[in-house]
Amino acid sequence: MSTDFQNARVALGARLRELRVEAGLNGKEFAARIGWQRSKVSRLENGKQTATEADTDAWAAAAGFLEQASDLRARLRGLESQQRSWRRQLAAGHRPVQDRYVVEYQQTRAVRGYEATVIPGLFQTPDYARYLIDANITLMQSPRDTEAAVAARIRRQEVLYEAGKLFRVLLWEGALYAFVCPRDVMVGQLDRLVGLIGMSTVELGVVPLGAPLPLTPKHGFWIFDEERVIVETINTELCYDSVDDVALYGRVWDGLDTAAVYGPRAHRLIARARRAIAPA
């Protein structure tokens, strides 16, 4: 079973548990109401068993949230791997995708990432995330669940404070100047980046404009535990887990890293962008 599939299944289980709790029932009571063995309720909630559409429909009805049946069905359709259409993933809105990311980052110890045009979700402020998610909702014509999606995205950031994890992230300097939000929101976002420098779990590098590069930076990508790579395109999320693909993206990251600056030098580049956006 692929890691992505299991992460999505765990996220679905967490949502099922939320609905049961909101209904005010414990596991035994819910099992009795829905007519199942208690063990099945437990397996579904803990991501140990793949639900069917009949299961999710029955769950929504038993919890008294029939309006959630379509959301649960859409989450089921998102249990894919390797190549996942954003349109299909976002059929129930952005929150289910963000919930899956929360699980994925919780289960990962080391990440190497690169972004060329946007501040990574792992480092975003709520206001910055809100503008990005709103814009993507409009683009994809998906359900407008902005606030729930923002909350889930920010919850993902709890992993930054867990001992033993390491997030090595490279950011193209041009992303510091990309106005995807109002100036005051961008200023707050840049201040957030500065605050990450020096954290024990974060190594933030900035690839300067004009720096000699061993290769051209093409698109963002994320390497999880040196086992799989996630690449996001406009319409698709791609997952690669072959040894050759992981090694290839690792070499690309290493090449970009040779051009990146860290610590005080990265701080100066961020401060320069801040001054350009909001002159004193």
Rank of each mutant, 00 (worst) to 15 (best):
N7D: 15
R9E: 03
L12H: 00
L12D: 02
G13V: 00
L16D: 08
R20S: 02
L25D: 04
A32T: 05
Q37L: 11
R38T: 12
S39M: 11
S42V: 13
R43T: 07
E45P: 05
T50Q: 12
T52G: 11
T52Y: 03
D55R: 04
A58T: 10
A61K: 14
A62I: 14
A62W: 12
A62S: 15
A62F: 13
A63E: 07
Q68N: 04
A69V: 10
L72T: 08
A74Y: 09
A74W: 03
E80K: 15
R84H: 00
R84N: 04
S85E: 12
S85T: 11
V97L: 12
D99H: 06
Y101R: 12
E104R: 15
T108H: 07
V111A: 04
V111R: 01
R112Q: 14
G113H: 04
I119S: 09
L122G: 06
L122T: 10
D127Y: 06
A129W: 00
A129N: 04
R130V: 00
Y131C: 03
L132N: 07
I133P: 05
A135Y: 00
T138E: 14
S142A: 15
D145R: 08
T146F: 10
R156M: 07
Q157Y: 09
Y161S: 15
F167I: 12
V169L: 14
L171A: 02
W172A: 12
E173A: 08
V180Q: 11
C181G: 04
M186E: 03
D191V: 02
R192S: 01
V194F: 01
V194E: 13
V194Q: 06
L196T: 01
I197P: 04
T201C: 09
G205N: 05
P208R: 07
L209E: 11
T216R: 14
T216F: 13
P217D: 07
F224D: 04
E227I: 04
I230M: 08
V231A: 00
V231W: 02
I234N: 08
V243Y: 06
D245V: 10
G250C: 10
W253F: 15
D254M: 11
D254N: 10
T258R: 11
A259Q: 03
A259I: 02
Y262G: 00
G263C: 05
P264M: 09
R265K: 13
A266H: 01
I277K: 00
I277H: 07
